[in-house]
């Protein structure tokens, strides 16, 4: 399946998480917060200074930095 990283998705886009990588602490935190393979994720908005981004996942709003979102592979 073609993939890209979460930080590259445009506002309003919905995608499925394919893989979550990153340094152990970050990976674990992302997984715990519900960002894990198979889950649907939607980009809601960027903060006024362009970072962090707000996503909808598992029915709630989550803010994460672009540098963190770059470790999340999503379907294109």
């Amino acid at each position: 399946m073609p993939s890209q990283t979460l930080d590259k998705l445009p506002i309003g886009a919905t995608a499925t998480v394919l893989d979550v990588a990153g340094e152990p602490a970050l990976q674990q935190r992302l997984l715990e917060m519900g960002v894990l393979p198979g889950v649907e994720i939607k980009v809601v908005r960027f903060a006024p200074m362009g970072d962090p981004i707000e996503v909808k996942v598992m029915g709630y709003s989550l803010s994460l930095r672009k540098s963190e979102a770059a470790h999340v592979q999503v379907s294109a």
Partner: peptide
């Protein structure tokens, strides 16, 4: 501390 993840729930 390495850059600690800043995952924040927006309640």
């Amino acid at each position: 501390s390495k850059a600690t993840p800043f995952l924040l729930e927006l309640p």
